[in-house]
């Protein structure tokens, strides 16, 4: 008889780590701690890379936003950049057309709201449908939104975008922390959700939705809830991206290519884990903007997508779950 299931009298902290962090062993905890420490101290050991790391933090937010719905429930969205792009464009359009000095405490919430509205427009009609309809509609959604940006170019700046958005800061160290801290906070919340009952239900929906429905869970409501959490996350990231570059173009924030990058990051990092996509974002952005630039601006895309293809074929579970479980098996398994 397994005594693991008899846990009366368990200390609170231990219960917390067990319930929400998946019962890590001491090596896993140490690794996570080292990674966190490394992230917090980047200016001291990788000062050259502050800009690209800051950008990676924003993409980590996008990847987490995608993962909490698509990585968990397997309702694969190919148009998530419509949410973050919608948020970024809300910031840009307000600044460009209404008031160039509009304060961030107004534009930010409105941008997040835009992401939520766009998200609900996708989700409410489609999450009840089985089959590929959800994915197709997200794809169509982002294509339609991109065309709308071109058509209403007078308000959106068309292909060349809006440059009136204020930049977060020119101090790279500040920029790094302004993006890292929100990313870690969002990550903490979403990791807790992912490891909780809610996350387990979402992942179970992804594996066998019919079974979960017959366990008494309103799967539609849970999917919508995940989508809402996703949309808020994407909205935050989208507004941050607008202020990161100080400009918005369809190519930077909206086009379907950006959506596909989010999928790629989550796949590389490890779908359904939240923490995996964070790592995936850093790997992907560093590859894209640092390592693969040896192939030129256009050539790097080929290299990048070939690498993603490699992962899809050979390492489908992603890098970080793989590493995590390797570390977990050091010392012969779990601590008692």
């Amino acid at each position: 008889m397994s005594n693991e299931y008899d846990r009366s009298g368990e200390p609170v902290v231990q219960r917390f780590t067990r319930e929400f962090l998946g019962e890590p062993n001491r090596y896993q905890i140490a690794s996570a701690g080292v990674a966190l420490l490394a992230l917090l101290t980047v200016p001291f050991w990788a000062g050259q890379y502050l800009y690209v790391f800051a950008l990676a933090s924003i993409w980590a937010i996008f990847a987490m936003g995608w993962d909490i719905i698509s990585g968990h429930t397997n309702y694969i969205s190919f148009g998530h950049s419509a949410l973050s792009g919608g948020a970024a464009y809300t910031t840009g359009v307000l600044v460009h057309n209404v008031n160039p000095d509009m304060a961030m405490y107004i534009t930010f919430p409105l941008s997040i709201l835009a992401a939520i509205v766009i998200g609900l427009l996708f989700a409410v009609p489609t999450l009840r449908l089985e089959g590929p309809y959800f994915s197709l509609i997200t794809l169509l959604g982002v294509l339609v939104l991109t065309q709308l940006v071109y058509i209403y170019g007078e308000y959106t700046g068309g292909e060349l975008g809006i440059t009136a958005v204020s930049t977060l800061t020119y101090n790279l160290t500040n920029l790094y922390y302004y993006t890292l801290i929100p990313m870690l906070l969002i990550g903490a919340v979403l990791v807790v959700v992912s490891q909780s009952n809610i996350g387990r239900i979402l992942r179970a929906i992804g594996e066998n939705e019919a079974a979960i429905e017959s366990s008494g869970i309103d799967t539609t409501r849970f999917k919508l809830w995940a989508f809402l959490m996703s949309a808020i996350t994407m909205g935050i990231g989208g507004a941050m991206l607008a202020h990161f570059y100080g400009n918005i173009t369809p190519s930077t924030v909206l086009v379907v290519d950006r959506s596909l990058e989010m999928v790629a990051i989550a796949v590389i990092g490890g779908m359904g884990t939240i923490a995996g996509p964070i790592g995936g974002a850093f790997v992907f952005i560093i590859l894209r903007d640092e390592v693969l630039t040896v192939f030129g601006s256009t050539g790097r895309w080929l290299a990048l997508w070939l690498i993603v293809l490699f992962f899809l074929v050979f390492l489908r579970d992603g890098i970080f779950p793989f590493i995590w479980s390797r570390i977990g098996s050091i010392g012969g398994g779990r601590d008692e």
Partner: peptide
């Protein structure tokens, strides 16, 4: 109709969860 990547215990556990989106 089991949940394939969850253990027996986890499968049973899932079926006891309340239908509450706020319940962690």
């Amino acid at each position: 109709n089991p949940i394939p990547s969850s253990t027996v215990g986890e499968n049973i556990d899932l079926f006891t969860y309340p239908n509450d989106i706020f319940s962690l």
